[in-house]
Design a protein around this nucleic acid. Structure first.
Ligand SMILES: [Mn+2]
Ligand SMILES: [Mn+2]
Ligand SMILES: [Mn+2]
Ligand SMILES: [Mn+2]
Lengths: 225, 225
DNA sequence: TCCTATTTTTAGATTAGTCTAAATAATGTA
DNA sequence: TACATTATTTAGACTAATCTAAAAATAGGA
């Protein structure tokens, strides 16, 4: 079967397709994948044929793409490694949460089951990475916690930040400046209907602040009673 | 200049050429490189042209190859990473010394100065890897300790094992069974002139044992008075 | 020195992954 | 339903790294 190890590039495509699949039910489009892996649509088509031949994705010309069982398993393995490495970098090597993604993009492709088991053990079997994302188990099980976007929270309600929807260094450093981290409690003072921006009270911060719709669309929270 | 990062493959060639250069003064042959990187001579020739064009090696058709300053620096960076990762795997992740090389072959190609600095710090700036090999400094300085092969030691003399000349799992596990590790003291009881094998007293072992010429040719030691 | 065996290089193909430009299919609007 | 726009695929080419087979250069022995 798929004994031969997947290439660096194949792993990146699978990961991208997996993420796109989970964030909207319909089949994933060629263009969306191209955008995600930073390449041209024509290159994506070529790779889709290859992955389909290996039965890692279900692909029908012009109809978009979805994952197969084996494909999802392979994708989750890469995601597991990515998130464990990010956690390792923060917990053991004092990286900040905005520094880890780029390095993890490289480390996730290291092939060594023993290595990743030992990293997992060293970290005490963490369940979430520095951005609040769940770490899939060795068996490929992932438990998405139920959460909503901060932009969906009603005025006056309180919530706790559980994850970020964007791991770009710029966004994360901006959150640092606002005093927002994973676990921070926030309360919506007012939602400005005109542009969707939000006046927000942040735990441990004296003054309320305003955040754009853009920002509130990238923060996952759970409601706090 | 050589701003563009070296590829995985280029790094492996440089490392191989560096090692071959240091273990015998004359220029390195195409065939020796081919053997070392497990490829064909014709492929090596192609790569030599490429590396020469980047001024990482000095190459003249049919005359063999030697390193340039920049080439040596690049090779030592890879070797530094390899040995730091090996040390990390043993010290922090409980790998045995025969398990580390293969994984380090992958990890040595991760590009992140910060990562390697932090690994170095976490380990307390080690000077030698699990096989007794010196770890080059960030500036590319390497201090080879003076040592001789066990096979060169005279009968009756005592020595301390400081490094192995072969890091293959088979050899290392055989040493484990003999009770020989880095730092172990050994005394030559008798050298068998007929086949070069050696009767050896190993520190902490009750009975002396015999090792082949092959084995004694792969153990680096320093004399102990 | 000459000749042969060995080493190295060249020539020409191949594979993975990418690209641009052109062709084709799907979609949505009139 | 017809047409124009958009999305996707195909065709053909390119680069990095590899290979085999053939040509060329070197080295060593007679
Ligand atoms: Mn990440
Ligand atoms: Mn993450
Ligand atoms: Mn090694
Ligand atoms: Mn080593």
């Amino acid at each position: 079967m798929s004994k031969t190890q997947l290439s660096f590039v194949e792993e990146n495509y699978l990961k991208a397709i997996y993420h796109l699949t989970t964030e909207s039910k319909d089949p994933v489009s060629t263009n969306a994948i191209a955008e995600s892996v930073q390449t041209r649509a024509a290159s994506v088509t070529d790779m889709l044929k290859k992955l389909a031949a290996k039965k890692l994705i279900a692909y029908k010309k012009y109809y978009g793409v979805s994952m197969t069982g084996p494909g999802e398993k392979a994708a989750l393995e890469v995601i597991r490694k990515h998130r464990l490495w990010e956690t390792f970098l923060v917990e053991k090597l004092n990286f900040t949460w905005d520094q880890v993604h780029e390095v993890a993009e490289q480390l996730e492709h290291i092939h060594s089951p023993l290595l990743i088991q030992r990293i997992d053990a060293l970290l005490g079997y963490p369940t979430h990475d520095p951005h609040g994302d769940p770490i899939p188990s060795e068996q490929g099980e992932i438990t998405e916690q139920s959460h909503i976007l901060l932009s969906e929270l009603k005025s006056g309600s309180e919530g706790k930040v559980v994850a970020v929807n964007d791991s770009s260094p710029d966004f994360l450093r901006y959150l640092d400046r606002l005093g927002i981290a994973i676990g921070t409690r926030v309360t919506i003072i007012e939602k400005v209907s005109f542009d969707g921006s939000i006046e927000l009270k942040v735990e441990n911060e004296v003054k309320p602040l305003f955040i754009s719709k853009e920002v509130s669309d990238n923060l996952w929270i759970t409601k706090v009673t």
